[in-house]
Design a protein around this nucleic acid. Structure first.
Lengths: 194, 194
DNA sequence: CCGGGACGATAACATATGTTATCAAGTTCA
DNA sequence: TGAACTTGATAACATATGTTATCGTCCCGG
């Protein structure tokens, strides 16, 4: 769905910074659609402040796929790279400050990068990381119960639970919002009397 | 977890073929472990005949992650690229004919490839495809019921159902083998009287 | 040719999860 | 400020799914 090389490969920061002038800064309120499901992605999105989710519509209700926060970048990767309609909507959750870099500059940037001596190695590593992320999402959902998945979120990515409305989290976990509420109250009970 | 550029980008076949001599051919029975969970992946695996699954152990029982068939290639991608212990076991399901290409040659191959003019574009496309595959797995499991997922398999990847033992499919779908059996019999009833 | 193991179906019961409806509190905005 | 909307909790009921146990078939190796 996206890559973000900034900070991951410091030697690439110089390249990245060269493209800063082409990025368009925007301050937007919550629930702003940055890319509509069905449209073709034209920008790489970088989040300076705020948070964002990707989701798709399924018979009227959303299914959230992923959350993004400060200093993360994303695009609807398949749409962006292969010029096909996006399967996902990208929408802000909080009022946010974001930067948009048009696709043409990203292509240009990639071409420049490909002359770096160990470009192949870097891109493989980035790719491997991204793949592991999504494979882990899949693994977690066939391995863990929704309750365990919620606990994992609580332990490993607490910022999500703190900043994201509960029904988005529910659809991301693959359960109904009612059931997520049950899970929370069950965990609360387990903790309270000790 | 894997890439396979052969057939996807025909212009690369020449590169690939140059490395054929370094591949080791093996004929192995069913249930042969090609890579053990916890070991570091040393080979890229290509399947000439037979089929293979990747899985991990979870409290005694396996969880299957993916199936591979003739003319597909795989590795435990993260392990292979980043030289870390593999999270998965790779094991044959049927008696199979496979080729192993040691990692050093794969690195070499990638380096050669990186001189191709639109290497960046190709690798992005490959990456996007792989990402979409895993994202779709995730999306399907938060969107669809196990019954729907079984139907999808039946319609879109029937070879899996024909060739793979049912309990592997069950763990891949994220349900118990008992429940998969129930799903099958329910679907059979729906079909029989018409 | 026999015996064990792999595979799959089914039943019975316990638990998890979905659905619908209702209520309460907080937020937003005219 | 008041109405509408968003968010979240809870109850009650229906359904889906897990667990354990049993049985039958098939297949492979001694």
């Amino acid at each position: 769905m996206f890559f973000h090389f900034k900070d991951r490969f410091p030697k690439l920061n110089a390249y990245w910074d060269r493209y800063l002038p082409f990025q368009k800064r925007m301050e937007v309120p919550a629930k702003t659609v940055l890319l509509q499901e069905g449209k073709i992605s034209q920008h790489y999105i970088f989040i300076e402040k705020g948070c964002v989710r990707t989701f798709f519509n399924n018979n009227g209700d959303d299914k959230t796929v992923q959350f993004f926060f400060e200093n993360e970048g994303l695009s609807s990767f398949d749409s962006f790279v292969n010029n096909v309609p996006s399967s996902f909507t990208i929408e802000t959750i909080e009022p946010s400050v974001i930067y948009l870099l048009p696709r043409q500059y990203v292509s240009q940037l990639m071409d420049e990068l490909s002359h770096e001596p160990d470009f192949a190695q870097m891109i493989l590593q980035m790719t491997a990381r991204r793949q592991m992320h999504y494979i882990n999402e899949f693994v977690s959902i066939i391995r863990d119960t929704p309750e365990q998945r919620y606990q994992l979120l609580l332990n490993e990515r607490p910022h999500i639970i703190q900043r994201v409305p509960q029904h988005y989290i529910a659809s991301y976990l693959g359960v109904s919002k009612v059931h997520l509420s049950r899970i929370k109250s069950k965990l609360a009970k387990g903790k309270s009397h000790f």
